[in-house]
Amino acid sequence: MNIFRLAGDMTHLLSIIVLLLKIYATKSCSGISLKTQELYALVFLARYLDLFTDFISVYNTIMKVVFIASSLAIVWCMRLHPLVKRSYDKELDTFRHYFLIGGTFVLALVLNEKFTLQEILWAFSIYLEAVAILPQLVLLQRSGNVDNLTGQYVFFLGAYRAFYILNWIYRYLTEPRFTRWIACVSGIVQTGIYADFFYYYFISWKNNSKLKLPA
């Protein structure tokens, strides 16, 4: 464990806390894409299959449980909670995310570390996470004004993988046989997808203005 990875995990956790806070405090999920939340739940379920078979550390196990539980809780909340589900922007959240699932699964069948179920699902979760934010970014562009908590949620979600890239550079330099091409390339693509969001987020922060993504 290095400081970059810890910072990345904490930032990721923070993004989930901000999202839970937004939904709980405002009893509304307006501006949040249910499709992105479903993709994230799928990412965690596909990636943490080894939750019960491989014990890595208490920290690792606890974080996996927290990520799986929180992502499922958010999907449940947006689908079934009587008050919250009414504020879901169903007509704006129209990204065809099934193509993302199909495309990344096919890619995982072709590009993986080992042609075993666990490795294929692990690679699938890595590729899917890279594109999971797309429905959310499309929704933000369509919904025009972005409320602060939603903007912070997306910002922290993008920032966490940037910390992971520093972690991979650090591990590459300090560990002899460290190579994680799948995670690294996918992580760079993932962070790149946030680039324009980061740009507009920075502009809105600098001008102290409302965050607006161009349609």
Binding site: R5, D9, H12, I56, N60, K64, E113, R180, A183
Partner: peptide, 10 residues
């Protein structure tokens, strides 16, 4: 034997 801690990251 110690399984290769391959996916030791979240």
């Amino acid at each position: 034997f110690q399984k290769v801690l391959y996916h030791d990251e979240l």
